[in-house]
Write a protein that binds this DNA or RNA. Structure first.
Lengths: 210, 210, 210, 210
DNA sequence: CCCTAATCGAGACGGTACGTCGTGTCTTTCG
DNA sequence: CGAAAGACACGACGTACCGTCTCGATTAGGG
């Protein structure tokens, strides 16, 4: 809940109002949770600074002291909870790892609370280029690297051609999933993911012309 | 638009203000244009009902009489201007048609005013599932059909296997472009589109396993 | 305004929409009744042109064609219904006539629908000097003359000194009643009226010093 | 009023904007003055919450936080400025005190800004029974007690019969004045007031029948 | 006997004000 | 000095009426 960074003050996690040095970990956590809960319960429109403050039992000023906007809060909440949830497994088998990872990605995006937050953040990114940049810098870039891991491992193992453009291939796979989630709204079930992976494996393993 | 006759009469500022059957086309057009202009000029946050009303020279009530929300207005504006702009050409050549169409799609999404509107609408769809449904019903479904045309024509000509899953293939192509636009923010230049099309042509024309 | 002209058409009061010469008596009546009813049912704030039009089944324009404001309508309605209701009786007995008339006035002002309308009109007169003038011209002046009748008759009969300032005396009697109704809100019961009349009779009949 | 100190500091336009306990006296005063000024300058119809807010340099919300309606504001403004203006003098002489007080009342009602506000409030009271109650509770009842003072003092001095119904007598005097102001619109000049007082003195000092 | 002009219903229009909600800033008080 | 509390100026919301207008139907007169 108040993971580790908080451990500086840690130990005594009693309520405090006012503190000579350092911020209240309790307030920070309450804000992030409140933002998350509000998004899930009432949708993006229900996430207002006032509602967060009220439901976190925190003063508005405390929020403005540490965050710049409600998307900033949601991003923090998202990173806190969900960042490491999408690390692909490593069983030494490309098909298995890729399938598992993409299934997990699909499930995360469409079923989890964290996915709802990410979708909201991506929505906001369409309205605010500056925030889009931040979102990419603080999450999407890293996630893309994680998404590429199975392919890179397979290339190192010789399971895939060494000259494969891993980034492009991953973008196509992941892009198909995001397209369904963000644009068409079609369900992203396991069968769909499997077809995607199968198609990729076939074409990637057939000798490239070059 | 057709107000010239009225304004020519001068003196008393008469114009079309209310009428028994049917609404004021003048007001409708002014609202759609104002919404479009505001989005391009000031971004989504600058599109407020009040700003639209003011810059269209229209009463707020007139807007609320005909539209339910600012996204409803933007969608109308978008459909009005840009719906038919993305019809793929038909030169009888799959590679050429597909390339041209996807290049046009990429250009539309990343460079045109209509693309800016569509991106905003897709952003809003992430915040509002009800609007997402409307957006799909009123635009995305139809566009998807248009996107499939080159493949279907090629299949009819025998340029592509008859059992190809055109919808899935198109989603993968289009999805890659949307992924760049909506998620990664990477530029979608002609080279990228060409690589996409080339990859598709190679794999689609090689004998399918079934 | 156009009172009598309307009654000329009279006789055949069947519905008609459109008429070469002359207005619809039916519409006129419906408007006046609707205004009255609305005032009684929902108070002055409930009397809006739109509500009158709706509940009279009449177009707004029809109202604006014949009346200038909602107070104009209420005044018409008031004059139609209630004008002659406050004519003092003539039994040839000052005390009896005066008592009866003032009791009737008190009852009218505090208990009747017509009284509610008059109070509303007097309220509006405080906000709008122009309307105050109209109200006095079209009703209050005449009523004041009626109020003076008992005293004048008594003077002619010799029941009151010939040099009595009837207007001043009546103003004091009527003024006391209006003061209770408009200002203090105290009930204006028969006992109060009787005390008023008794006091007047005593002082008016004792020889004036002049 | 006391905002000069703030504006003198110049540069950064700091002033009193929000504070932990208690409201901004500056905002309160500005609102009351603006309401008063608007009533005098533009009449009751010109007193809108928006106009008050604008001309007081205050946010609408600040008004709604502390007042319930524009009449509530006007009542506050009235009580602030004018409440104690109508205290009768005490020279130990009934005729002189009464004459002076009623002249002052007449002048206040017909000539002063405070009188314009009171007339507007009385007008509104006719439209809104709830407000009528408030107006009586917060002003009229007290004023009535003040109006009675000269008579009560005279009774204590023996200048008037001990069994005089002071309230009734005062209501008749004051009622006559209000009647002219609110109903007939006749001027309320000194001569009128003097006649009123003379009449009262004569009848009150002649032996009462009981 | 139709033509024409006045009036009716309906209702859209440009406006103004309403009362509410959220924003981001500021001030005070407490610990 | 951080935090709770909350008042403030501001701006947008969505609604209610205003008074004006345009329409199409209806109905007398008058030509």
């Amino acid at each position: 809940m108040e993971q580790d960074g908080a451990t500086a003050t840690a130990g005594t996690d009693r309520a405090h109002r006012g503190n000579r040095h350092g911020r209240s970990e309790q307030a920070r956590t309450a804000v992030l949770e409140a933002a998350d809960d509000l998004l899930v319960a009432k949708g993006f429109a229900g996430v207002t600074i006032e509602a967060i403050a009220a439901s976190a039992g925190v003063a508005k000023q405390t929020i403005y002291r540490w965050w710049t906007s409600k998307t900033d809060i949601l991003l923090d909440a998202f990173l806190q909870d969900a960042a490491e949830e999408l690390t692909p497994p490593d069983h030494g088998d490309l098909g298995r790892d890729l399938r598992a990872h993409l299934r997990q990605l699909a499930h995360f995006l469409t079923r989890s609370d964290g996915g709802a937050v990410l979708r909201a953040l991506l929505g906001q990114a369409q309205h605010d280029p500056a925030f889009a940049t931040v979102l990419r810098a603080r999450y999407l870039t890293e996630q893309r690297l994680r998404d590429m891991l199975p392919l890179e491992r397979a290339m190192r193992r010789g399971d895939l051609p060494a000259d494969l453009d891993a980034a492009a291939e991953v973008d196509q796979l992941v892009g198909s999933i995001f397209h369904r989630v963000l644009v068409t709204g079609d369900p992203v079930d396991d069968a769909f993911v499997d077809r995607l992976v199968d198609g990729f494996l076939i074409r990637a393993r057939s000798a490239p012309p070059s």
